[in-house]
Protein backbone atom coordinates (compact mmCIF):
# COMPACT_ATOMS: atom_id res chain seq x y z
CA UNK A 1 0.00 0.00 0.00
CA UNK A 2 2.51 2.51 1.15
CA UNK A 3 4.90 1.68 -1.62
CA UNK A 4 2.07 2.04 -4.14
CA UNK A 5 1.19 5.49 -2.96
CA UNK A 6 4.85 6.31 -2.92
CA UNK A 7 5.12 5.43 -6.58
CA UNK A 8 1.95 7.28 -7.24
CA UNK A 9 3.30 10.36 -5.49
CA UNK A 10 6.47 10.20 -7.50
CA UNK A 11 4.63 10.20 -10.84
CA UNK A 12 2.32 12.91 -9.60
CA UNK A 13 5.29 14.99 -8.67
CA UNK A 14 6.81 14.23 -12.03
CA UNK A 15 3.64 15.30 -13.77
CA UNK A 16 3.19 18.42 -11.71
CA UNK A 17 6.72 19.60 -12.30
CA UNK A 18 7.08 22.55 -14.56
CA UNK A 19 7.34 21.08 -18.00
CA UNK A 20 9.96 22.19 -20.40
CA UNK A 21 8.16 23.99 -23.15
CA UNK A 22 10.60 25.02 -25.88
CA UNK A 23 7.83 26.52 -27.99
CA UNK A 24 6.87 28.95 -25.26
CA UNK A 25 10.46 29.94 -24.77
CA UNK A 26 10.73 30.78 -28.46
CA UNK A 27 7.56 32.86 -28.22
CA UNK A 28 8.67 34.77 -25.15
CA UNK A 29 12.07 35.23 -26.77
CA UNK A 30 10.54 36.72 -29.91
CA UNK A 31 8.29 38.96 -27.84
CA UNK A 32 11.38 40.23 -26.07
CA UNK A 33 13.06 40.86 -29.41
CA UNK A 34 10.02 42.88 -30.50
CA UNK A 35 10.50 45.02 -27.43
CA UNK A 36 14.22 45.29 -27.97
CA UNK A 37 13.74 46.52 -31.56
CA UNK A 38 12.80 49.88 -30.11
CA UNK A 39 16.21 50.03 -28.47
CA UNK A 40 17.77 49.23 -31.84
CA UNK A 41 15.81 52.12 -33.36
CA UNK A 42 17.18 54.52 -30.77
CA UNK A 43 20.71 53.25 -31.27
CA UNK A 44 20.21 53.55 -35.02
CA UNK A 45 19.07 57.15 -34.72
CA UNK A 46 21.92 58.13 -32.41
CA UNK A 47 24.53 56.29 -34.44
CA UNK A 48 23.43 57.66 -37.79
CA UNK A 49 23.02 61.23 -36.56
CA UNK A 50 26.31 61.06 -34.69
CA UNK A 51 28.47 59.45 -37.35
CA UNK A 52 27.24 61.63 -40.21
CA UNK A 53 27.58 64.73 -38.04
CA UNK A 54 31.13 63.69 -37.28
CA UNK A 55 31.84 63.55 -41.00
CA UNK A 56 30.32 67.00 -41.30
CA UNK A 57 32.47 68.51 -38.58
CA UNK A 58 35.57 66.89 -40.09
CA UNK A 59 35.14 68.92 -43.28
CA UNK A 60 37.71 71.66 -43.71
CA UNK A 61 35.10 74.38 -44.15
CA UNK A 62 33.32 73.52 -40.92
CA UNK A 63 34.38 74.04 -37.38
CA UNK A 64 32.46 73.07 -34.29
CA UNK A 65 33.03 76.48 -32.73
CA UNK A 66 31.72 78.37 -35.73
CA UNK A 67 28.76 76.01 -36.01
CA UNK A 68 27.54 77.06 -32.58
CA UNK A 69 28.59 80.71 -32.65
CA UNK A 70 28.25 81.99 -36.21
CA UNK A 71 25.02 83.68 -37.18
CA UNK A 72 25.33 83.05 -40.91
CA UNK A 73 24.09 79.88 -42.63
CA UNK A 74 25.14 79.93 -46.25
CA UNK A 75 26.17 76.47 -47.42
CA UNK A 76 27.03 77.75 -50.91
CA UNK A 77 29.56 80.15 -49.41
CA UNK A 78 30.90 77.67 -46.89
CA UNK A 79 29.29 79.44 -43.94
CA UNK A 80 27.82 76.99 -41.47
CA UNK A 81 26.48 78.74 -38.38
CA UNK A 82 23.34 77.14 -37.00
CA UNK A 83 21.87 80.21 -35.31
CA UNK A 84 19.81 81.51 -38.27
CA UNK A 85 18.04 78.14 -38.46
CA UNK A 86 17.53 78.02 -34.70
CA UNK A 87 16.21 81.57 -34.87
CA UNK A 88 13.63 80.54 -37.46
CA UNK A 89 12.58 77.55 -35.38
CA UNK A 90 12.31 79.58 -32.19
CA UNK A 91 10.35 82.41 -33.81
CA UNK A 92 7.77 79.99 -35.11
CA UNK A 93 7.66 78.07 -31.84
CA UNK A 94 7.10 81.24 -29.80
CA UNK A 95 4.32 82.45 -32.09
CA UNK A 96 2.76 78.99 -32.05
CA UNK A 97 2.80 78.92 -28.25
CA UNK A 98 1.35 82.44 -28.06
CA UNK A 99 -1.56 81.12 -30.11
CA UNK A 100 -1.88 77.64 -28.67
CA UNK A 101 -1.39 78.18 -24.92
CA UNK A 102 -4.28 80.62 -24.34
CA UNK A 103 -6.61 78.73 -26.66
CA UNK A 104 -5.55 75.29 -25.44
CA UNK A 105 -5.75 76.15 -21.74
CA UNK A 106 -9.05 78.00 -22.04
CA UNK A 107 -10.45 75.08 -23.96
CA UNK A 108 -9.22 72.64 -21.33
CA UNK A 109 -10.61 74.66 -18.41
CA UNK A 110 -13.92 75.14 -20.17
CA UNK A 111 -14.27 71.49 -21.13
CA UNK A 112 -13.18 70.20 -17.74
CA UNK A 113 -14.88 72.66 -15.37
CA UNK A 114 -17.76 74.34 -17.17
CA UNK A 115 -19.08 72.34 -20.10
CA UNK A 116 -22.22 70.23 -19.83
CA UNK A 117 -21.93 66.73 -21.26
CA UNK A 118 -23.76 67.87 -24.38
CA UNK A 119 -21.38 70.78 -25.03
CA UNK A 120 -18.44 68.49 -24.38
CA UNK A 121 -19.88 65.96 -26.79
CA UNK A 122 -19.75 68.61 -29.48
CA UNK A 123 -16.34 70.16 -28.85
CA UNK A 124 -14.36 67.06 -27.99
CA UNK A 125 -14.76 65.33 -31.39
CA UNK A 126 -13.95 68.60 -33.14
CA UNK A 127 -10.61 68.78 -31.32
CA UNK A 128 -10.03 65.11 -32.13
CA UNK A 129 -10.62 65.78 -35.83
CA UNK A 130 -8.09 68.61 -35.61
CA UNK A 131 -5.52 66.09 -34.32
CA UNK A 132 -6.14 63.77 -37.22
CA UNK A 133 -5.55 66.28 -40.03
CA UNK A 134 -2.15 65.73 -41.68
CA UNK A 135 0.35 68.52 -41.26
CA UNK A 136 0.80 68.94 -45.02
CA UNK A 137 -2.86 69.94 -45.20
CA UNK A 138 -2.19 72.54 -42.52
CA UNK A 139 0.68 73.72 -44.72
CA UNK A 140 -1.70 74.07 -47.65
CA UNK A 141 -4.04 76.02 -45.34
CA UNK A 142 -1.22 78.35 -44.28
CA UNK A 143 -0.33 79.16 -47.89
CA UNK A 144 -3.84 79.49 -49.31
CA UNK A 145 -5.63 81.10 -46.39
CA UNK A 146 -3.46 82.43 -43.59
CA UNK A 147 -0.76 84.13 -45.67
CA UNK A 148 -3.20 85.95 -48.00
CA UNK A 149 -5.24 86.97 -44.93
CA UNK A 150 -2.22 88.43 -43.14
CA UNK A 151 -1.08 90.16 -46.29
CA UNK A 152 -4.47 91.79 -46.75
CA UNK A 153 -4.54 92.90 -43.10
CA UNK A 154 -1.02 94.28 -42.78
CA UNK A 155 -0.32 95.15 -46.40
CA UNK A 156 1.60 93.26 -49.04
CA UNK A 157 4.63 95.51 -48.68
CA UNK A 158 4.94 94.61 -44.99
CA UNK A 159 4.17 90.91 -45.07
CA UNK A 160 6.22 88.73 -47.37
CA UNK A 161 4.74 85.82 -49.32
CA UNK A 162 6.76 83.56 -47.06
CA UNK A 163 6.50 84.67 -43.45
CA UNK A 164 7.06 83.39 -39.98
CA UNK A 165 3.76 84.69 -38.61
CA UNK A 166 1.53 82.65 -40.89
CA UNK A 167 3.54 79.49 -40.23
CA UNK A 168 3.56 80.18 -36.48
CA UNK A 169 -0.20 80.75 -36.22
CA UNK A 170 -0.98 77.58 -38.16
CA UNK A 171 1.49 75.50 -36.15
CA UNK A 172 -0.24 76.97 -33.08
CA UNK A 173 -3.61 75.77 -34.33
CA UNK A 174 -2.01 72.38 -34.91
CA UNK A 175 -0.85 72.00 -31.31
CA UNK A 176 -4.00 73.39 -29.65
CA UNK A 177 -5.65 69.96 -29.33
CA UNK A 178 -2.43 68.46 -27.95
CA UNK A 179 -2.10 71.07 -25.21
CA UNK A 180 -5.81 71.11 -24.42
CA UNK A 181 -6.13 67.34 -24.12
CA UNK A 182 -3.03 67.00 -21.92
CA UNK A 183 -4.18 69.88 -19.71
CA UNK A 184 -7.67 68.46 -19.51
CA UNK A 185 -6.31 65.08 -18.46
CA UNK A 186 -4.31 66.79 -15.72
CA UNK A 187 -7.39 68.67 -14.47
CA UNK A 188 -9.55 65.58 -14.60
CA UNK A 189 -7.05 63.92 -12.25
CA UNK A 190 -7.68 66.55 -9.57
CA UNK A 191 -9.95 64.88 -6.99
CA UNK A 192 -13.48 66.21 -6.66
CA UNK A 193 -13.09 66.61 -2.91
CA UNK A 194 -10.86 69.64 -3.54
CA UNK A 195 -13.55 71.25 -5.67
CA UNK A 196 -16.28 70.45 -3.18
CA UNK A 197 -14.26 71.87 -0.31
CA UNK A 198 -13.74 75.10 -2.22
CA UNK A 199 -17.42 75.36 -3.15
CA UNK A 200 -18.27 74.69 0.50
CA UNK A 201 -16.20 77.70 1.48
CA UNK A 202 -18.27 79.81 -0.89
CA UNK A 203 -15.94 79.99 -3.88
CA UNK A 204 -17.40 80.70 -7.28
CA UNK A 205 -16.88 78.42 -10.23
CA UNK A 206 -14.18 80.69 -11.61
CA UNK A 207 -12.35 80.74 -8.29
CA UNK A 208 -12.54 76.96 -8.05
CA UNK A 209 -11.19 76.60 -11.59
CA UNK A 210 -8.38 79.12 -11.42
CA UNK A 211 -7.38 79.00 -7.74
CA UNK A 212 -7.91 75.33 -6.93
CA UNK A 213 -8.02 73.10 -9.98
CA UNK A 214 -5.41 74.81 -12.15
CA UNK A 215 -2.79 75.08 -9.38
CA UNK A 216 -3.42 71.47 -8.42
CA UNK A 217 -2.97 70.36 -12.03
CA UNK A 218 -0.15 72.76 -12.77
CA UNK A 219 2.52 70.12 -13.27
CA UNK A 220 0.44 68.29 -15.85
CA UNK A 221 -0.45 71.53 -17.59
CA UNK A 222 3.17 72.68 -17.72
CA UNK A 223 4.24 69.28 -19.03
CA UNK A 224 1.60 69.55 -21.73
CA UNK A 225 2.85 72.96 -22.81
CA UNK A 226 6.42 71.68 -23.00
CA UNK A 227 5.24 68.71 -25.12
CA UNK A 228 3.43 71.16 -27.40
CA UNK A 229 6.62 73.19 -27.68
CA UNK A 230 8.59 70.09 -28.63
CA UNK A 231 5.99 69.31 -31.26
CA UNK A 232 6.28 72.83 -32.68
CA UNK A 233 10.07 72.61 -32.82
CA UNK A 234 9.89 69.36 -34.79
CA UNK A 235 7.05 70.39 -37.10
CA UNK A 236 8.18 70.28 -40.72
CA UNK A 237 5.58 70.63 -43.44
CA UNK A 238 3.86 73.85 -42.37
CA UNK A 239 7.15 75.68 -41.91
CA UNK A 240 8.65 74.34 -45.13
CA UNK A 241 5.67 75.53 -47.14
CA UNK A 242 4.84 78.79 -45.38
CA UNK A 243 8.08 80.13 -43.99
CA UNK A 244 10.27 79.89 -47.04
CA UNK A 245 13.66 78.43 -47.85
CA UNK A 246 15.94 81.35 -47.00
CA UNK A 247 17.78 81.24 -43.67
CA UNK A 248 17.55 84.56 -41.84
CA UNK A 249 21.24 85.39 -41.47
CA UNK A 250 21.76 88.16 -39.01
CA UNK A 251 24.37 90.29 -37.34
CA UNK A 252 23.25 91.43 -33.93
CA UNK A 253 25.64 94.41 -34.01
CA UNK A 254 24.42 95.74 -37.33
CA UNK A 255 20.85 94.55 -37.91
CA UNK A 256 17.85 96.10 -36.15
CA UNK A 257 16.47 93.57 -33.71
CA UNK A 258 12.74 94.15 -34.16
CA UNK A 259 12.84 95.36 -37.74
CA UNK A 260 14.79 92.40 -38.99
CA UNK A 261 16.05 89.77 -36.57
CA UNK A 262 12.72 89.15 -34.85
CA UNK A 263 10.48 90.44 -37.64
CA UNK A 264 7.52 88.05 -37.88
CA UNK A 265 6.40 89.33 -41.27
CA UNK A 266 9.27 87.92 -43.28
CA UNK A 267 10.28 84.35 -43.92
CA UNK A 268 12.96 82.43 -42.07
CA UNK A 269 14.07 78.90 -42.75
CA UNK A 270 13.88 76.53 -39.80
CA UNK A 271 16.00 73.51 -38.95
CA UNK A 272 13.33 71.11 -40.15
CA UNK A 273 12.72 73.24 -43.24
CA UNK A 274 16.39 73.11 -44.15
CA UNK A 275 16.49 69.34 -43.78
CA UNK A 276 13.36 68.83 -45.88
CA UNK A 277 14.35 71.23 -48.66
CA UNK A 278 17.90 69.92 -48.89
CA UNK A 279 16.78 66.32 -48.97
CA UNK A 280 13.98 66.87 -51.49
CA UNK A 281 16.43 67.70 -54.26
CA UNK A 282 18.58 64.95 -55.70
CA UNK A 283 21.04 64.84 -52.86
CA UNK A 284 24.21 62.82 -53.36
CA UNK A 285 25.79 60.90 -50.51
CA UNK A 286 28.88 62.09 -48.69
CA UNK A 287 28.65 65.66 -49.87
CA UNK A 288 28.81 68.46 -47.35
CA UNK A 289 25.11 69.17 -47.94
CA UNK A 290 24.19 65.58 -47.17
CA UNK A 291 26.26 65.56 -43.99
CA UNK A 292 25.00 68.96 -42.89
CA UNK A 293 21.39 67.77 -42.60
CA UNK A 294 22.52 65.20 -40.06
CA UNK A 295 24.31 67.81 -37.96
CA UNK A 296 21.11 69.88 -38.00
CA UNK A 297 19.11 66.74 -37.30
CA UNK A 298 21.25 65.94 -34.29
CA UNK A 299 20.72 69.43 -32.88
CA UNK A 300 16.98 69.09 -33.47
CA UNK A 301 16.92 65.65 -31.88
CA UNK A 302 18.74 66.86 -28.78
CA UNK A 303 16.41 69.85 -28.47
CA UNK A 304 13.23 67.78 -28.64
CA UNK A 305 14.72 65.10 -26.40
CA UNK A 306 15.59 67.79 -23.85
CA UNK A 307 12.06 69.20 -23.99
CA UNK A 308 10.44 65.79 -23.68
CA UNK A 309 12.52 64.77 -20.68
CA UNK A 310 11.91 68.20 -19.14
CA UNK A 311 8.18 67.57 -19.35
CA UNK A 312 8.56 64.16 -17.73
CA UNK A 313 10.68 65.66 -15.01
CA UNK A 314 8.09 68.34 -14.31
CA UNK A 315 5.44 65.69 -13.89
CA UNK A 316 7.63 63.54 -11.66
CA UNK A 317 8.88 66.29 -9.40
CA UNK A 318 5.84 68.48 -8.98
CA UNK A 319 3.04 66.01 -9.19
CA UNK A 320 0.68 66.27 -6.23
CA UNK A 321 -0.26 62.87 -4.95
CA UNK A 322 -3.87 62.50 -3.96
CA UNK A 323 -5.32 59.40 -2.53
Amino acid sequence: MTSETGVHDATMAEQLKRRNRPFERVIVGSLFISGAISIAVTIGILWELGSESLLFFREDEVSLGKFFTSTVWQPQAGEFGIWPLILGTLLITVIALLVAVPIGLSAAIYLSEYASPRVRGFFKPVLEILVGIPTVVFGFFAITFMTPLLRSIFGESVVGFFNVLSAGIVVGLLIVPLISSLAEDAMAAVPNSLRQAAYGLGASRLEVSLRVVVPAALSGIAAGIVIGMSRAVGETMVVTLASGAAPRNFDLAADPVFGYVLNPFQGAQTMTGYIAITASGDISYDTIDYNSIFAIGLTLFLMTLGLNSLSRRIVKRYRQEYD
Partner: peptide
Protein backbone atom coordinates in the same frame (compact mmCIF):
# COMPACT_ATOMS: atom_id res chain seq x y z
CA UNK B 1 11.07 58.79 -25.68
CA UNK B 2 10.73 57.47 -29.23
CA UNK B 3 7.10 58.57 -29.33
CA UNK B 4 8.29 62.16 -28.97
CA UNK B 5 10.96 62.12 -31.67
CA UNK B 6 9.99 64.39 -34.62
CA UNK B 7 8.98 62.43 -37.71
CA UNK B 8 11.67 64.04 -39.84
CA UNK B 9 14.32 62.35 -37.68
CA UNK B 10 12.82 58.99 -38.60
CA UNK B 11 13.09 60.09 -42.20
CA UNK B 12 16.81 60.67 -41.70
CA UNK B 13 17.13 57.22 -40.14
Amino acid sequence: NLAGVPSIIYGML
